[in-house]
Design a protein around this nucleic acid. Structure first.
Lengths: 156, 156
DNA sequence: TAAAAAGATTAGGTAAACTTAACATTTAAA
DNA sequence: TTTAAATGTTAAGTTTACCTAATCTTTTTA
C-alpha cells in the first residue's frame, strides 16, 4: 500500500482508473474499468465490493460507480504521482509507450520520501529549463549522450 | 517478470538474495534467505523447490544452496539493475534507508527501455560530474533546490 | 413491446506467495 | 556419544487477484 490505511496497490489502480474515467466520460461502468485495467468484468465486480465495503467507492448492483470523498482523495494522490512519474520518464527520454506503462508501475510501493525526491527533480528541471544556461546545456548534453548510445547500439 | 523466461519478480528476489549471501559468506542457508527477504523459512523452502525445478538453483533437502550458471546470470542482471537504481536514488538525494528499500522495488517490472534510460542517466551524471562546469553547476543547483524545499517543509 | 444483444453478476476455480504448527534432521555442547 | 538447541521440512490453510462458464438484468432494436 502506498498511500493509506490498508489498501493494496491494486486497489489503488482501480481508484485511479475510476477517477480518470469519471473525468473523461462523467460516469463509470464495470466494462470501462475492465478495459482500462485489462482485466475481466468479474474481477472488477469483486474489487468494487471490497472498495464499497471500505467506503472508497459507492457501488450498487447494476448501478453506476462513484468515488466517495475519501476515495477521491486517494485517487488524486495517486494521479499526482502518476503525473510526476510520467514527466520524469519524459525527461529521461523514455519512449512514450513505455513511459505510460512504467509510470503506472512507479507510482506504487515507493516510500514517500523517494517519491518526493522524484517530484523535486521534475520540478527542478521544469522550473529552470527556460532560463539558466547551465540547465539548457545540461539537457542538451544528456540528449546528445543518449543519441551516442543509440548509435552504438544500432551499429551492433 | 523483468528478465527472462517466465520467472516472477519474487523469484528474482530470491535469486538476488542468494547471490548476495553467496558473495558475502560463501554459502547459503534457508535461514539466511528468510532473514534477507523477511519471510518465514517454509516460504523459502517452497521457492527453492520451484527454482530447483527450473534449474536456476541447486537445492537438496538439508543441503546447501547454490546458483546454477543460468541462475547466476539472472542474479547478476538483477544485481546490476539494483546498483543502477541505488546510484540513481543517491543522485536524487533520497535518504539512504529509503534508497535501499526502494531500489529493490524499482528493479522489477519496468520495461527494459526504461531501465536503460535510468542507467544512461546515472552514467551520464557520473561520467561527467568531474570535468565540465555545467555539470558541477547542475548538481549544486539541484542540491540547493532541495534544501530550500526542506526548509519550507520544516517551517510548516 | 417482445426478442436479441450487451452488460453485470454469481459460482466455482486457480496460482502465487505467504503463514502457523508439528515434525524431522543436523550440529554443537555437556 | 547422547541430548539439547538450532535449523529445515511438511502439511494444511489464508489472502489476493485473477479466471471461465453460466445466469441474470438492462438496453436496444425490429
Amino acid at each position: 500500500m502506498v498511500s493509506d490505511a490498508g489498501i493494496s496497490s491494486k486497489a489503488e489502480d482501480y481508484l485511479r482508473a475510476i477517477y480518470e474515467i469519471l473525468n473523461q466520460k462523467g460516469f463509470v461502468r464495470i466494462k470501462d474499468i475492465a478495459r482500462e485495467l485489462d482485466v475481466k468484468p468479474p474481477t472488477v465486480v469483486e474489487m468494487m465490493k471490497k472498495l464499497d465495503a471500505k467506503k472508497l467507492v459507492v457501488y450498487e448492483k447494476y448501478g453506476g460507480i462513484t468515488l466517495t470523498e475519501r476515495g477521491k482523495q486517494i485517487a488524486e494522490l495517486i494521479e499526482n504521482r502518476h503525473e510526476t512519474f510520467k514527466n520524469f520518464l519524459e525527461i529521461l527520454l523514455v519512449p512514450k509507450d513505455n513511459a505510460l506503462k512504467d509510470a503506472h508501475i512507479l507510482e506504487h510501493e515507493l516510500t514517500s520520501e523517494t517519491i518526493q525526491q522524484f517530484s523535486r527533480f521534475v520540478n527542478f528541471i521544469t522550473e529552470h529549463s527556460e532560463r539558466p544556461m547551465f540547465m539548457k546545456r545540461w539537457m542538451q548534453e544528456f540528449q546528445k549522450y543518449c543519441e551516442t548510445r543509440e548509435n552504438k547500439a544500432k551499429k551492433k
